[in-house]
Nucleic acid binder design. Structure first.
Length: 404
RNA sequence: GGGGGGAUACCAAAGUGGCCAACUGGGGCAGACUGUAAAUCUGUUGGCGUAAGCCUUCGCAGGUUCGAAUCCUGCUCCCCCCA
């Protein structure tokens, strides 16, 4: 097994990285692996409580992929056992525990999506219930003796919750221990995680040391800032872009991010090589509009291919910039000679969730037929044999109504 | 084991017998504007109805009252303090 030079590897590994603890140890491990021709064991745990992956998750998955491409051994842990607890990191609430069935199902969805980033052929996938589930109560007691309460509650998320009179369940203390035990079991050399994982990753190191193993290096990636430009990307803030998302939405949502995020996203979410990054950094300042379109294109292309990305770009230009009908507008047919109220037609499209909402939209000028705003609630459309109407509801919903 | 506090719409949070479909903020949606689906400003934000109006909603179940999110009873869940 041969690897790129340690310098080259470090360059790749450090891209976008916030912190490597301790960095010298990583260098040492890389040198040793190069010398022995032995890949490093890179661990990443995933949480199968929420199966929908978004670009925020892709940051860390991409880092794992980079290790794969460098020739190292990637291990993805499906935290089916730890999901019983729910990671308290960065949470202000106890996570709900899921049933084993739901977890299995989620795990499959997760892998399907993660496969768009990772090289599944070279990936070792393990389920931590395989070893954690076999521990006896005695084992758990011994394990929990290795960390003090004082250390535990000095964590931000716990101390904050405690101060705010929010509940912390005892079992949440077991999460970092369980995750650390994974490292002991897998003898990992490096564990990847978001910055919010620092404590958990360090516990793994600690436990490995007590087990007389060479401790893992902890590598922290930043939490991706979501489309709102302030919060980390997550479903609960609704500022996310799903890995599964259709090209049009993906492209459009990327364009919505604040300009100051453009470079950051290039760095964390794309394969654009290091030399080109500098170019985009400049472009993001001098020409944010084009830089952002480039970014949207590159990201859409990564997940959907070039053709889809081109179509998404056209779709955006057509609907948002020129405000024209998109090619993929919904087409509805009506019998010639019929007459229908616009309100009822819109309700049938599913563009709105109630008649009340439709009326509100009309009142506010959000509904137009053939580019003319319709505010009359009683407006009716009469279909003759040759009728065709272009309907726009809100910003994003288009339909063509024609006689047939 | 004892004492105290709480549960309101997507979230946070007012309201403590009629003026409450419920202040306000965030979020969402729409309009204007824009390179943009950003920012900003404005409007809007339970259902049915063209409207008048009607119906459902303030943890759950009952009750008092002409009338309750607001008062009473029971229940469920949560938080804090003392032990």
């Amino acid at each position: 097994m041969s690897f790129p030079s340690v310098e080259k590897q470090l360059e790749v590994i450090k891209r976008g990285t916030v912190e490597i603890l301790p960095e010298e140890e990583l260098v040492g491990k890389l040198q040793k692996s190069t010398k022995d021709g032995k890949p490093l064991r890179i661990k990443l745990g995933c949480d199968p409580t929420r199966p929908d992956l978004h670009l925020g998750h892709s940051v860390i998955l991409r880092k794992l992929r980079q290790f794969q491409d460098l020739g190292h051994h990637a291990i993805l842990i499906i935290g089916d056992f730890t999901a019983l607890i729910g990671d308290p990191s960065g949470q202000n609430k106890t996570r709900p525990s899921l049933s084993a069935d739901e977890i299995r199902k989620n795990a499959n969805t997760y892998l399907e999506q993660a496969g768009k980033v990772l090289d599944l052929d070279k990936l070792e996938i393990v389920y931590n219930a395989d070893w954690l589930g076999k521990m006896s109560f005695e084992d758990v007691i011994r394990l929990s003796s290795k960390l003090t309460v004082a250390r535990m509650i000095e964590r931000d998320d716990f101390s904050k919750r405690y101060q705010n009179n929010e509940p912390i369940s005892l079992h949440e203390f077991l999460y970092p221990l369980a995750q650390g035990q994974d490292s002991v079991h897998l003898k990992s050399d490096v564990e990847l995680g978001g910055t919010d994982q620092k404590f958990n990753l360090l516990v793994g190191r600690h436990l490995q040391q007590l087990d007389k193993q060479p401790p893992q290096v902890c590598l922290m990636m930043p939490l991706l800032v979501g489309t709102d430009g302030t919060h980390k990307m997550s479903k609960s803030y609704d500022n996310y872009i799903g890995i599964d998302e259709n090209p049009n939405d993906m492209y459009g949502k990327v364009l919505r991010i604040p300009d100051n995020l453009i470079y950051n996203w290039f760095e964390l979410l794309t394969d654009v090589e290091v030399e080109k990054l500098a170019f985009y950094k400049k472009k993001a300042e001098s020409d944010p509009r084009d830089a952002k379109h480039d970014l949207a294109f590159v990201i859409t292309e990564m997940y959907h291919g070039k053709t889809a990305a081109e179509e998404a770009r056209n779709h955006f230009e057509q609907t948002v910039i020129k405000k024209e009908m998109p090619e993929d507008a919904l087409v509805l047919s009506f019998e010639p000679g019929t007459k229908q109220r616009l309100i009822d037609i819109i309700s049938n499209t599913g563009f709105t969730s109630s008649n009340g909402e439709t009326k509100r939209l009309m009142k506010q000028g959000g509904v137009s037929v053939n580019d003319e705003k319709i505010t009359d609630m009683n407006f009716e459309l009469t279909f003759t044999s040759e009728s065709e109407f272009q309907l726009k509801v809100g910003k994003r919903n288009f339909a063509i109504l024609r006689s047939e």
